[in-house]
């Protein structure tokens, strides 16, 4: 049963061994555990191919001679972060002013891959605050945008991971334009869970991210 597989067990002593009881705590990723990373679709025609070529050629120009492991922060300068309706096609995405984390992560994944960097998609669960998530609920709700990425003070988020050699990965947050810190943390903005997924990864293949060992296609709680 999937709950057994992903739940943590806490012992609530409540000050007395006699009253100790086991309570089930749902995993932080429970709400999104079956979600798949966002994809950008292709019409199969010149329109999407022009858009895709434009993204990858612009990415190379934007490197300005820096190394291929450099994060493509230019994407976030080109696109604001905001709601994206899916399915979204390449020819639509490049003309949008705003893209959500999934679309931005998909673009970043694409440019890393074209650079020759081994890249995978990552799904993340982050903790913010009730105040922050209520703001997002309000602003996205007004536009009738989907809100399922928000749950209480937690959010579902997407990025991509690059293999820097010897199965060591770095996690790129394409919406923020920074590398996610692997150090466990709690509090505002803290990363609580991560899953690496990509059709190129073998099931059970594992990667090292700071002190964490992450297995492909398996959620890992990080703090």
């Amino acid at each position: 049963m999937y709950l057994d597989a992903v739940s943590n067990t806490l012992i609530n002593t409540n000050g007395s061994a006699k009253t100790a009881r086991t309570i089930e705590k749902k995993a932080v990723f429970e709400y999104w555990k079956d979600w798949q990373p966002s994809q950008i679709s292709h019409h199969g025609g010149l329109c999407c191919e022009i858009a895709r070529e434009w993204i990858t050629a612009t990415d190379f120009s934007s490197l300005n001679g820096d190394g291929i492991f450099t994060g493509p922060r230019w994407l976030r300068q080109k696109f604001n972060w905001g709601a994206s309706r899916f399915p979204i096609h390449w020819c639509e995405a490049v003309r949008r002013d705003t893209l959500d984390c999934g679309a931005l992560a998909a673009l970043a994944h694409e440019v890393f891959t074209v650079r020759g960097v081994k890249s995978s998609r990552v799904q993340l669960v982050q903790k913010f605050s009730a105040l922050a998530t209520s703001q997002w609920t309000d602003s996205w709700g007004k536009g009738n945008e989907p809100l399922a990425w928000i749950k209480d003070d937690l959010i579902y988020h997407e990025g991509c991971a690059i293999d820097t050699g010897d199965k060591n990965i770095k996690v790129w947050d394409a919406s923020a334009g920074w590398w996610v810190d692997s150090k466990p943390a709690d509090g505002y903005g803290a990363l609580l869970a991560i899953r690496l997924s990509d059709f190129n990864l073998r099931t059970g293949e594992s990667f090292k991210w700071g002190e964490h060992i992450i297995k492909a296609d398996e959620w890992l709680e990080t703090s």
């Binding site: 010149l46 191919e49 022009i50 070529e53 434009w54 990858t56 050629a57 190379f60 120009s61």
Partner: peptide, 13 residues
């Protein structure tokens, strides 16, 4: 090199 890539894209498209 950047120009070569752009030219390659133009050629292909």
């Amino acid at each position: 090199e950047s120009i070569l890539r752009w030219c390659g894209s133009i050629e292909a498209l």
